[in-house]
């Protein structure tokens, strides 16, 4: 009986892949199973070393420059074979957009249950996982009653833990030829300037309190540190300080990040309508009577030009 960890197919090991492997390691220890990992994609070379310390016994590697991105028609048959070969009972992947697609496909092929986007995974005489439902308003705690069991782990939630000795055995295999594979025309890796607001996990937004367009760098710096998107209230947009695409509110974008940091925003209802689905709202405003304080989780009454740079500094320390 083994656990299979799926290493994200991005040509580069992302932390999301390491997080999934860490979870797989914990479960393997608790369930007393051997941990197998699989990698399908462009050559990893030295990066394979980064997979040490997770107690992986074997890494099966299918390397090819041609497969730059997960293609279900190529990968699913590979995974299916591995499941039989190693008697896989649990598969753990990461819940990136591509990771979720792999997990769903292999789950269907194995007629197995799948829980996507887990925020907590445990083993207690069987696999258990917690996942948010209803846009995060509810957390559901679920147990698998059948094997194989498949889960994908939400990125950036669980820690990367290396607690085992020894290096994995690397088994390199030939990439199978799939005659009618879906063709990938091209991959555009554009360093998008800033994260898309509606998809952002963290948003730092500024309002009238910003004082003028010359002050955006104060917020932008915090965005860069946190990987956040920059938003603005309507009054900041109307003042011509920033483009309309950044506007959050009833007549702008409706966002639902995990964390919303409102800086110098009074928080009238027209703005709230755009950000009320944020999971956690932090308000920074020098006016203690600002409406935003009656609908935030954490409020700091203070000048944003003092608070934000401090916050940037602290976050940088925390994240480095």
């Amino acid at each position: 009986m083994s656990i299979l960890a799926l290493i994200a197919q991005q040509g580069e090991l992302k932390s999301s892949a390491l997080e999934a492997v860490s979870v797989a390691n914990q479960i393997a220890q608790k369930a007393d199973m051997q941990l197998i990992a699989v990698y399908i994609g462009p050559p990893l070379a030295d990066q394979l070393k980064r997979l040490e310390g997770f107690g992986i016994e074997k890494i099966v590697v299918f390397e090819s420059e041609a497969v730059t991105y997960y293609q279900n028609d190529i990968c699913v048959p590979i995974l299916q074979k591995l499941v039989t070969e190693f008697d896989i009972k649990v598969i753990i992947g990461s819940a990136t957009s591509i990771g979720k697609e792999v997990c769903a496909s292999i789950a269907a092929k194995l007629d197995a249950e799948l829980i996507q986007d887990c925020i907590e995974v445990d083993w207690d005489d069987g696999l258990q996982a917690k996942k948010p439902i209803f846009a995060g308003k509810i957390i559901s705690d679920i147990s698998f009653t059948n094997m194989p069991a498949i889960i994908s782990v939400r990125p950036n939630i669980l820690p990367v833990i290396r607690n085992r000795e020894g290096a994995p055995e690397i088994i390199k295999r030939e990439m199978p030829h799939v005659p009618h594979a879906k063709s990938i025309k091209n991959i555009v890796r554009e360093a998008k300037s800033g994260v898309e607001l509606t998809e952002a996990k963290v948003i730092v937004a500024g309002g009238r309190g910003i004082g003028g367009p010359e002050n955006w760098p104060v917020l932008q710096e915090l965005c860069d540190v946190m990987g956040a998107a920059l938003g603005a209230s309507r009054s900041a947009v109307d003042a011509g300080w920033i483009h309309h695409t950044h506007q959050i509110g009833q007549t702008g974008k409706v966002v639902s990040p995990d964390l919303y940091i409102a800086c110098g925003i009074s928080g009238a209802i027209q703005h709230q309508a755009g950000m009320r689905n944020s999971k956690v709202v932090v308000a920074i405003n020098k006016d203690p009577g600002a409406e935003i304080f009656s609908s935030c989780d954490y409020g700091i009454v203070g000048d944003l030009f003092e608070v934000v740079p401090l916050l940037t500094k602290e976050m940088r320390k925390l994240l480095s």
């Binding site: 009238r208 309507r234 009054s235 109307d238 003042a239 009074s266 009238a268 209802i269 027209q270």
Partner: peptide, 10 residues
């Protein structure tokens, strides 16, 4: 009230 508050803020 809402519009004028915005305008005066502006």
């Amino acid at each position: 009230m809402n519009m004028l508050a915005d305008g005066i803020k502006q």
